[in-house]
Design a protein around this nucleic acid. Sequence first.
DNA 1: AATGAATGAGCATTCATTCAT
DNA 2: CATGAATGAATGCTCATTCAT
Lengths: 208, 208, 208, 208
Amino acid sequence: MSPSPTPAPAPAPAAVRRAELLATAGEVFARQGYNATTVRQIADAAGMLAGSLYYHFDSKESMIDEILSGFLQELWAGYDAVLAAGLGPRETIEALVVESFREIDRHLSAVAIYQKEARHLSAQPRFGYLADSQEKFERVWLDTLRRGATTGAFRADLDLRLTYRFVRDTVWVAASWYRPGGQHSPEEIARQYLSMVLDGIAVPPKES
Amino acid sequence: MSPSPTPAPAPAPAAVRRAELLATAGEVFARQGYNATTVRQIADAAGMLAGSLYYHFDSKESMIDEILSGFLQELWAGYDAVLAAGLGPRETIEALVVESFREIDRHLSAVAIYQKEARHLSAQPRFGYLADSQEKFERVWLDTLRRGATTGAFRADLDLRLTYRFVRDTVWVAASWYRPGGQHSPEEIARQYLSMVLDGIAVPPKES
Amino acid sequence: MSPSPTPAPAPAPAAVRRAELLATAGEVFARQGYNATTVRQIADAAGMLAGSLYYHFDSKESMIDEILSGFLQELWAGYDAVLAAGLGPRETIEALVVESFREIDRHLSAVAIYQKEARHLSAQPRFGYLADSQEKFERVWLDTLRRGATTGAFRADLDLRLTYRFVRDTVWVAASWYRPGGQHSPEEIARQYLSMVLDGIAVPPKES
Amino acid sequence: MSPSPTPAPAPAPAAVRRAELLATAGEVFARQGYNATTVRQIADAAGMLAGSLYYHFDSKESMIDEILSGFLQELWAGYDAVLAAGLGPRETIEALVVESFREIDRHLSAVAIYQKEARHLSAQPRFGYLADSQEKFERVWLDTLRRGATTGAFRADLDLRLTYRFVRDTVWVAASWYRPGGQHSPEEIARQYLSMVLDGIAVPPKES
DNA sequence: AATGAATGAGCATTCATTCAT
DNA sequence: CATGAATGAATGCTCATTCAT
């Protein structure tokens, strides 16, 4: 054991409780939808009374805010690492897809909440970062696809925005049915998805 | 041409009003979500008072019910026609995808509502038909994919359920961004989607 | 047959319709209570739409008003005839009770409505006549009882107000279970009631 | 006297508040009728806002439910004690009447509510116990009267069901005018009522 | 940290009533 | 006379939030 090297800055116990409560809230939000979830249901799931949650959080809105911003922070940490690696377009797409399925695996409820609620939340100033992230997301993927279409890695006959939406939705919608601990690992699912997205599901006609 | 006899069965004016109101309600539901939509908002959008809606409909729930069941009825009319044609697996998939994009074009808000609300609605007995439809839908697509994998039209190395979800989501999620009257017709979008789903987005390696 | 003696002034057809509608409304009021009855239920029972009732009546309130005032008018016609006959106290009480059961038989729903609604209606100025009638009613009965106590027809050891309430309630509450056309005629019921009220239900101790 | 041990089990403060609120609600229900009473009126009378009532009760219906079931429970405790005493028919009737006036005195508003609302409430499954109680009530009284008619305590020439209704109504209708704390105690009223019911209000003809 | 009791704004729904047709 | 469509006020109820303890 190493002598005293502050291995991880031992999170304050209050922060631990917060994280537990957020995980609980996230599951309920994901299952029932944000609007349809009452603060009381969250409190029930956490074994406390509704009013008690307000010792930990300012509001129901601040809970979903913290869930979504925390998720996006981690997502971009992963994406930025991939982008910093300077891979070719195909390899970048592959790495982003793998990273995305890992995020789904680790933050399933946050992803599900994001899918369902991001659109109407981003109308509020407080959730402006959702639109920012969306925009950055689109830029990154679209640039990579464009680069690939230019270099010949990807087909050049496709509408790029359509392709972008196709790939994006294909990946993230998986959050609606994915269950962690199932028979396929995130990496396995990513591989199959990539295989379909890149090569198609049809058997290619034999070249004569 | 018959001389004068009732060229079109002239829908009752009451039914016309109902349909208008349902279209209005559908748009608001699709934009804001069912739970987050108040009947006042629907009434505002329809230019009447909240209470007046209850002359036409029993409840808010009966509105979404009518919207969803009407949509599913038309969807299955289209699907059943495709299936009755006895096409090969690839041609069946192609026809189903085209039909699906046409439904998205014609019933955009119903499709969007279905995507967002079907899961939690289908828990209620009144909406049992949603689960029934879901099940039939899965059977139809999965059978076609299985048939294609057997006949050699589709790759045999893919997990079929994964493939099913992939194709299904790929198509229907389009409702989240599709806007009727845009630059691509539903058939054009269907063609591009099919091209990606069947052949992939990567440039295939040249056969030597 | 008498030549042309306008046997009864041939009620205007409009008045007939009014009476029919009032009878219908009265039955629904009696069954469900005034407040719990909706104008629509009355209209349903009358085979028309809710709005159409307003061609005949100003308001729901004017319906119950007409029902109650019509009933009280007939009741007092009967009572006044009894009182004008100048009978002794016991015979007066007997005649009033018989007359009351006849009114119950003929105006069952009006009586039932009166029992249930008079108290809270009489707070409104429009229904001031209910309190007036109540007061006149009490005066008539109380006077007769007092007369009887004085003349020795009735026991002198009873609290007169208590006795009044006892007799009054005993008679009118019958409206809550009486059904016209049953096995006892109003007169038969009146006789039994009078027998109990006047002579008691116990077997009197034998005088030695 | 025992030295110090919890003389009365000190009811939980929450239960005390509940009881206060039920008493308040009962008064308003009795005065205005259940349907005509709004929860806002109850809340006003209780010095709180309408929504706050729902911290204590599930619904307006559960308030009247608790009022009525609580009353019937106490009523039957009293009646059952009387019946268990094995008195003769006349003494049983006397004891039941005294007990009834005591219940009127203690649960005036519950009795008044019962009178007005029991009939239409008992149609709902939730209030099935009202019909059960009604039936048991009728059985108890009717049996006692029948027994009395057989043993010669009561007149044998009367229709028993008519007599039952007569006695029953005579007692309970008193709730419509009785005010606790008035000049007559419940026992005093019971005595006068019994005197009228048993011996009649007429002066019996002298036996020669 | 958590509870118990309350607030107050808002919601779906009901219903007596109106009125042009 | 009656209909069909709408009004507007009120109703029972929900729920995020507050706060003294």
